[in-house]
Design a protein around this nucleic acid. Structure first.
Length: 422
RNA sequence: GGAGGAGUGGCAGAGUGGUCGAAUGCGUCUGUCUUGAAAACAGAAGGCCCUUUACGGGGCCCGUGAGUUCGAAUCUCACCUCCUCCGCCA
């Protein structure tokens, strides 16, 4: 959500932003609804003021005759107010629908482009290693070492289902605990948050009204969130955060559920794209300053890069083009890890900032230096998702004998084991 | 799942149809006093929206949304949340 006054004064910017994001949005349509809205509000409120004045003349002491006269006088006024109020309600509904569809303006530095194919590499780390033997896919490696069961996965859970077993299950726990240590050392507070969330939380974070088909829904009308960001942001909804607690940095853990509605044919095997997974997410709230947002955006993205570097997995970072940005995002980086089995980079992390887009919808405020109430800025970035991280971890660390060497940093979390074998 | 009770400002808490954006207490801020602080005394203080160059004017907000009424924190309905008891489950 953006400020309607800002939209009014910057309609060209808004329209250009929507164009850059390849989103259909007509700012003139919103503004014409807004004009009608304001005219109606002014006229209705003027008559309400009259009505209130007359009402105040009627008190307990008013005699019956005068009372009846005044009530009669107001009857036509009331009817006219009512008619316009009904019209206003309809206009407001349309106005709100338009307002939640206004795309946030992408940053100047966001490249033009249609889709993820147009994202621009901004950093590359590590060399895609060549193996002196024939490299296998994580699926083969894991099945041979009895680390996963995809057959049972689909039998039990359905399409894209999986079981993690033995060393892979332990490795998942190890990564979680290492991530928890890594980020708490950087000043993040650790939270385990719900995945089962109410509709409003998804509106607040910008996943609704668009994108409903990607979410699992319960018979009570609640949803299973696709990221811990949803509950974490909603945790702060309708609150005022003391300024000295900003920036607020949270490492949030939760199960995540995604229907992957638009990607039926893609990545149907293995652990790349699954319906149910776990994720550690960085969520940050800060003062309403573009510079602060940019600084923290770089910082949280760098955190994940460092984490990946400590695991020794080759990656590159891309800046997402306009067409690959969500409704509320101002700018986004994706970190993609090298997957030897596919000979390409696959997304592992996504870092976005929103300015006050989410905070407006969720009503998250603080008081600035002048004691003025303002909306915070919000940002988030994947810390680490499991099991997807296992794909590149296992494939990059596979050995000729079919076993998996463990990155040293993880060994303390794996009872000092060095290798995952049979 | 069944029965009952409750939701008021930063907090506690009064208010059951008009004089209530809301008593009172605590807390907060500003003065006076003081070398300074405390105490005491005096005073101030919410959000959203429309309008105005500005000063200002106006509307809405007592969990949320509808309704009754000339007039609603107060009455009616629905929903949400919390509490108590019973049932069920871990």
């Amino acid at each position: 959500m953006l400020d309607i006054k800002f939209i009014r004064e910057n309609k060209e910017l808004i329209q250009a932003g929507a164009q850059k994001k390849r989103m259909e949005f007509d700012v003139e349509k919103l503004l014409s609804v807004d004009t009608i809205r304001r005219e109606l509000v002014t006229s209705v409120e003027g008559r309400k003021a009259d009505q209130n004045k007359v009402s105040q003349q009627i008190t307990v002491e008013t005699d019956a005759e005068k009372r009846n006269a005044l009530i009669e006088e107001m009857r036509t006024l009331k009817d006219s107010i009512k008619a316009d109020e009904e019209r206003l309600a309809e206009v407001m509904k349309e106005w709100q629908l338009q307002m939640v569809s206004v795309p946030n303006i992408p940053d100047m530095s966001v490249p033009e482009g249609e889709s993820d194919a147009d994202n621009v590499e901004v950093k590359k780390w590590g060399d895609a290693q060549t193996f002196p033997f024939e490299a296998k896919s994580h699926i083969d490696i894991m099945e041979e070492l009895d680390l996963a069961d995809f057959k049972k996965g689909t039998d039990v859970s359905g399409f894209r289902g999986y079981f993690l077993k033995n060393g892979a299950a332990e490795l998942s726990l190890a990564i979680w605990m290492y991530a928890r240590d890594f980020w708490t050392k950087k000043g993040f507070s650790f939270m385990i948050v719900p995945s089962l969330v109410r509709r409003e939380t998804l509106f607040g974070t910008g996943y609704l009204p668009q994108g409903e088909e990607d979410l699992y829904k319960t018979q009570d009308g609640d949803f299973l969130a696709g990221t811990a960001e949803v509950a974490t942001m909603a945790y702060f909804a309708d609150t005022e955060i003391p300024k000295n607690e900003l920036p607020k940095k949270v490492l949030a853990f939760s199960p995540c559920f995604r229907r992957e509605a638009g990607s039926h044919g893609k990545d149907v095997k293995g652990l790349i794209r699954v319906h149910e997974f776990f994720k550690m997410e960085q969520v940050v709230l800060c003062e309403a300053s573009h510079e602060e947002s940019v600084k923290l955006h770089e910082e949280i993205n760098r955190n994940t890069e460092e984490f990946i570097e400590s695991l020794g997995i080759p990656y590159h970072t891309v800046v997402n083009c306009g067409g690959d940005l969500g409704l509320g995002q101002v700018k986004k980086y994706d970190i993609e890890l090298w997957v030897p089995g596919e000979q390409k980079y696959r997304e592992i992390s996504s870092a976005s900032y929103f300015h006050d887009f989410q905070a407006r919808r969720l009503n998250i405020k603080y008081r600035d230096e002048e004691n003025k109430s303002r909306f915070v800025h919000s940002l988030n970035c994947t810390a680490i998702p499991t099991p997807r991280i296992l794909v590149s971890l296992i494939e990059n660390y596979q050995q000729e004998d079919g076993t998996i060497r463990l990155p040293e940093i993880l060994r303390p979390y794996m009872a000092n084991k060095e290798v995952i074998g049979k």
